[in-house]
């Protein structure tokens, strides 16, 4: 079986950039025309570090060929819910890539052959086969008003 040489770079290169907390610029739309997206992570085995996520609202952004619509770093500790909300989103299709930075070093860990050693996940709980989940599988509709995604990670 092959190793997965491209997995780390393809999946999460955008997440290894230094992240600021994912608060977007003030919305350019009136409140009732934009969407809010609450993202909740479940199933974390280790209660340390942070979940890093990137929200892409185009296939190009999902493929790291255009800027992300938002990024977030959610600290993980104790029993606190691992949740974040993006506001002011333009309605349309979006997808999330996330990893659990268990050791808190800000990077997605990889073994010497480049295989991720820290948990990662995608919206819709989509899974990849030898690479990231496909846009078609991971993308979902963000509508005006409130939206929610619950992602199992670990």
């Amino acid at each position: 079986m092959p190793s997965l040489p491209d997995l780390r770079t393809m999946v999460l290169v955008s997440l290894t950039l230094s992240l600021s907390v994912g608060v977007l610029p003030a919305p350019a739309f009136a409140a009732d025309e934009t969407g809010a997206l609450t993202v909740t992570f479940r199933g974390l085995k280790a209660r340390t570090g942070a979940v890093m996520l990137s929200l892409a609202c185009s296939e190009a952004a999902y493929g790291d060929k255009a800027p992300a619509a938002g990024q977030a770093m959610i600290p993980v500790s104790g029993d606190t819910a691992v949740v974040t909300t993006f506001k002011g989103l333009t309605p349309g299709r979006c997808a999330i890539k996330a990893f659990h930075d268990v050791n808190g070093d800000g990077k997605m860990g990889a073994n010497p052959f480049g295989i991720p050693t820290e948990p990662f996940a995608f919206s819709n709980n989509a899974h990849g086969a030898m690479g990231p989940a496909k846009w078609a599988d991971a993308s979902f509709e963000v509508k005006a008003g409130d939206n929610a995604q619950t992602i199992d990670i670990d």
């Binding site: 997965l4 295989i115 990662f120 990849g128």
Partner: peptide
Amino acid sequence: SAKRGARVENN
């Protein structure tokens, strides 16, 4: 070959 529904995120 991998078929639809495959889940391969590590070896």
